[in-house]
Computed example of a mutant assay.
Amino acid sequence: MARHLKIFQVEKEPPCIFVTPLGQGASFRYADLQMESNSVRTLVADQTVPLLIIDLKNMNYFGSEFIGALITLGREKKLRGGKVAICSANPNMYDVLKGMSLFKLWPYFESRDEAIAGLSGESA
């Protein structure tokens, strides 16, 4: 799925869609990030996969533009009645996301499996 993407890996495994950023967020050109975010947003809007899990396992750093792109993806899923979670951030990125209050928007889980279980167990 979406093999042309260079910034995000997208996997659709109903009821989940996994978005995994590749590489380092600070190294992406803004125009490329926006173009890919728009492509991924279309995939995230698919209501047949109600759970969006943003997997940060590959990230060591990302800037504000990158965080903005992730927020846009999460909002798109929420607007479509879906649920969103973040998982697998390294300790430094976890602290950054926590400091930015992102976990007030969406829950955080240590792994994909925990995120799937957590979102599946939540009431709608």
Rank of each mutant, 00 (worst) to 15 (best):
I53L: 12
K57H: 14
M35E: 14
A31Q: 05
L22Y: 13
L43D: 15
G23H: 15
F8N: 04
H4F: 14
V40K: 06
A117Y: 03
S101L: 11
K77V: 01
F28S: 05
I86S: 04
V19T: 02
S120Y: 04
M59N: 11
G82S: 05
V49L: 07
L97G: 12
W106T: 00
G82T: 04
G25Y: 05
H4N: 11
G63K: 01
L105S: 06
N38V: 09
K98Y: 15
F62L: 07
A45F: 07
V84G: 06
R3Y: 11
R29N: 14
G74H: 08
F28A: 04
S64G: 04
K57A: 15
F103Y: 11
Y30M: 09
K98D: 15
F103R: 08
L102G: 05
I67K: 07
K83Q: 09
G68M: 12
T72E: 08
K6A: 13
T48M: 13
M100T: 02
R75Y: 06
L56D: 01
L79W: 00
F66C: 02
L73Q: 00
A31L: 11
G23C: 15
V84F: 09
A31E: 01
K98L: 15
S27Q: 14
L119W: 00
D46Q: 12
N60H: 14
F109S: 02
